[in-house]
Design a protein around this nucleic acid. Structure first.
Lengths: 184, 184
DNA sequence: AATCTAATTCGATAACCATCGAATTAGATT
DNA sequence: AATCTAATTCGATGGTTATCGAATTAGATT
């Protein structure tokens, strides 16, 4: 889950919190000192520190009256190294529904009964539609051109175009002369 | 100015924008495609992309109907390398008023007339007060103990403690026998 | 030229969040 | 034990921002 990454960036997406990190990079400070330096109230600084702690960027220990906060340098280095690694980025991308685009195109171009209003002019959208349409054919089964047209006609009257494009986009194949089609 | 850093982190501090970055890491996408994939409206995605562009994380070019956005990998690498460098961190810290802590302590312990309500019990605060008090003495000039007490008395009646602590914290020095003091 | 299509901009709304002050808690000093 | 101090928590408030729908713009296709 990329929740952790969001927490990390949110923690640093505030100028006062960045200043806190900058100060703690020099040496540890108590809440009171930070508040005085940043000219904020202790309660506000406490709030900021809890956000930084949630991202594991700082930790604290008691020291007489004070709770002294220090920067977790390890975390900082680790994050800056791994943050934009290929694995990290693709794990974030993995969270999106890869079919959402096709689904939307199909939805936009379909009528209530499942037939198509029109055939999209744009290649990408046409391809999405064809990926949908081709599901009407069973894998490994052979169809005559007549049967193909019957099936396609439930989507759109222009079965010739659909048939041609399905082959063109290599979603179906046609045997040289016999006029037999199959899904690939 | 750390404004740039804040912009950078703010740009990534949103889960949908992170997903966009994750997707663009694979390949370029149009606004419409991103909107379908994230199940957001194009106007919303446009908004997100403009934030990412402001941080120079993405750029776009027109392509037929679409404006196709791509990730600026250079920027990503550069940022992840320099983000937490010592120079970057200390430049952020440099924006805070280093005297703000002393000023606050002095303010908290001073009455309207400039004299001190009490002497702080905590070392750090006492030190801040002493750094303030010592300014009443000219650099390079010598003072008799009697004169020192006169000057200190405008801050607090316990001149003996003040005098002793000023020497203890090495803000003033005292000649062995003669009883002369000077600021250091 | 007329028409589409996608992108952007704008205004409105709801959710989020930084900040504060007051009240409470935790802990140390006396 | 009583008192003091700093930290935290809580509630309220004002400012920010993610999201949407409508209107507009920019550009390509016909």
């Amino acid at each position: 889950m990329s929740e952790e990454l969001v927490t990390f960036f949110k923690a640093l997406a505030d100028s006062n919190r960045l200043k806190i990190v900058g100060l703690l990079a020099e040496k540890p400070y108590s809440v009171e000192e930070l508040a005085a330096l940043l000219q904020l109230k202790p309660s506000t600084v406490s709030h900021h520190l809890s956000k930084l702690a949630e991202a594991e960027l700082v930790s604290s220990h008691a020291e007489s009256y004070y709770s002294v906060y220090q920067l977790d340098q390890k975390m900082l280095e680790q994050k800056s190294r791994s943050m934009f690694s290929q694995t990290e980025l693709s794990s974030v991308a993995a969270e999106v529904d890869a079919d959402a685009y096709d689904n939307k195109v199909v939805k936009d171009y379909s009528k209530r009964d499942g037939s198509l209003k029109t055939l999209p002019a744009q290649r990408k959208k046409l391809e999405a539609i064809l990926r949908h349409v081709v599901k009407a054919f069973e894998m490994g089964k052979r169809y005559s051109e007549k049967r193909v047209n019957e099936i396609l006609s439930q989507y759109h009257e222009d079965t010739a175009t659909l048939r041609r494009e399905l082959v063109g986009f290599k979603l179906m194949q046609r045997e040289g002369g016999g006029g037999e089609y199959w899904r690939v």
